[in-house]
Design a protein around this nucleic acid. Structure first.
Lengths: 229, 229
DNA sequence: CGTGCAGTTGAGCAAATTCAACGCTTGTGG
DNA sequence: CCACAAGCGTTGAATTTGCTCAACTGCACG
C-alpha cells in the first residue's frame, strides 16, 4: 500500500465554478495556432473543470492560475498526472470521454475552445490536424518523463520536481508553488510527510531555501541535478 | 534507491540483427489502415531494433515474437515503457529522434514502413493522419495506465500485470510470458526478487499456477482483479 | 477566540530492497 | 559425452526506505 491521498468524497470545495461572462469577441476567427482564441472562463480554487468519464466538450488553455489533472483509484488513492501552468494546453484526449479529472488549483482563468469546432477545422485543414497531433505527442512525452520519475527514490523525485517546476517558471532559481504539499505528493507518488521531510532535508543541506512553504529558492541547481538522477 | 536493473553495457548479445530479405512485394500499395504493408525484418533475441536518440526511420508492427521499449537512467537503472506483442505497432513518436530504445525480447519478426513515406501520405490523406494520431493517443493512454501501475503496491502491480498480459494474449486464462523476470521487474518498477516472491505467493494462495516460470495459469481472475486495485 | 487547513516533525512499523546463496537448465568446449 | 560456466529464477536474512499514526505549530477566516 504505497498510499497517496485518500480522497474524501466531500472535500471542502467552493459551491460551484462560476463562468465569467467573457469577451464577446471574435469567436468565429478561432485559430488552432499558438494563439488559440475562444471564450474565457474562470474557476475558483478547487473548482472542478471537468471530470473523468465526462464527454469531452472543450479544449483548454491556462491563462492564469494553475490546474491539476488527476485520476482516482477505486480505493481512493489519487494520482496527479500533470500540472498545467499559464500557457499550457490541456484536455487533449482522443476518444469521447475524459480520462482524467481536472480542477483549478488556485483561482484560475482558462481559455476554452469547443472541441467540435476544432475537430471540424482539423478535418479540413491538415495544418490544424498536425498541430493537434503534435500537442498530443508532447503530452505523451510528458507522461513518459513522469513515468521515469516514479521509479526513482523519494529524494530524486523531489529534486526532479523542483527542477521541472523551475524550468517551467519565469525565474530560473525561484519557485512559487501554486499547489499544496498533498498535490505534490500525489504527483510524485509519495506521502505528504515524505515530501515535507525531503524538502526540509534539502534546506538543511543548503541546496534550497524555503522562505515560505510555497516559495522555494534553488541555491544549487548542480546539487539538485546530481540528486535528481 | 528504488533500483531496477543496472545495465551492464556489454551485455551478451548476438553480433547483429540480420535483415531478412523480405517480400519484394507491393511496397507501393502501402496503406496506413489496419493491414499496414511493408518490409519484413527479423531480429534475434536481445537484438537492438533501434536506440534512444537515434533518428526515427521506420514505423514497426510486430508479426511474431515480442519487443521491449525502454529507457536507461544515467545511473544505469532501466525502465521498460512497454511490451509490444504480435499486432502491436510501435515507434510512433513525434519529433525526429527515438525517445526509447527497442529490443527484441525473443527472436521476432516485424513489419517496417518508412516513416517518410507515411508522413508524406499523411500530409495528403487526412484519414491516414487521423489514424496515426489515434495510434499516438492510444500510446498515451497506455502510458497513463502504466503511470497508475507505478503508484501501487508490489502485489497490486504484479496482479495488474498478469491481468494486462492475459487481456492481450490469445487464451484468457493462460499466459506465456516471452520476457524474463528482470524485464517484468523493470516494467513494474520493482526488483526481480520482489516479482519472484510475489508470484510465488500468488501461487501459494492458489490464485495462479506456475507450471514453468514463463507459463502462468490464472486460476482466479476475480482474486487478481481484487488484488490489482 | 475557536475552528479548520496546511505543513512539519517524531516514533514505530511494514514493505520492498540489498546481499547472498543455491538449484535448474542450457550451451559450450575439452 | 561429460564437465563446467553462464543465465535465469527462487529463497532466506538483514537492512533500509518510506509509510502510518500521532502530536504539534502557524495561519487564515469567521
Amino acid at each position: 500500500m504505497v498510499s497517496q491521498t485518500v480522497i474524501r468524497r466531500n472535500r471542502s470545495r467552493p459551491p460551484a465554478a462560476y463562468v465569467a461572462r467573457s469577451a464577446p469577441t471574435n469567436s468565429h476567427s478561432i485559430r488552432a495556432s499558438n494563439n488559440l482564441m475562444g471564450a474565457k472562463m474562470s474557476f475558483a480554487r478547487n473548482a472542478e473543470i471537468y471530470s473523468e468519464n465526462e464527454p469531452i466538450e472543450y479544449l483548454y488553455r491556462v491563462i492564469s492560475g494553475a490546474v491539476r489533472a488527476y485520476k482516482v483509484l477505486n480505493d481512493g488513492r489519487r494520482q496527479i498526472g500533470a500540472f498545467y501552468l499559464p500557457g499550457d494546453i490541456f484536455a487533449l484526449e482522443v476518444g469521447d470521454e475524459h480520462l482524467f479529472s481536472a480542477e483549478a488549483i488556485v483561482d484560475s482563468e482558462v481559455l476554452v475552445v469547443k472541441r467540435s469546432v476544432l475537430v471540424a477545422l482539423a478535418a479540413r485543414d491538415i495544418k490544424v490536424a498536425g498541430h493537434l497531433c503534435m500537442l498530443t505527442a508532447e503530452e505523451l512525452q510528458r507522461a513518459h518523463d513522469h513515468l521515469l520519475l516514479l521509479i526513482k527514490a523519494a529524494q530524486e523525485r523531489v529534486a526532479s520536481f523542483l527542477l521541472e517546476m523551475a524550468a517551467r517558471s519565469a525565474s530560473a532559481n525561484e519557485l512559487h508553488l501554486p499547489m499544496t504539499r498533498q498535490d505534490v505528493a500525489d504527483y510524485l507518488g509519495l506521502t505528504i510527510e515524505t515530501v515535507s521531510r525531503t524538502l526540509t532535508q534539502l534546506q538543511k543541506s543548503g541546496t534550497i531555501k524555503i522562505p515560505t512553504s510555497r516559495h522555494i529558492i534553488l541555491r544549487s541547481r548542480a546539487t539538485l541535478s546530481r540528486l535528481s538522477a
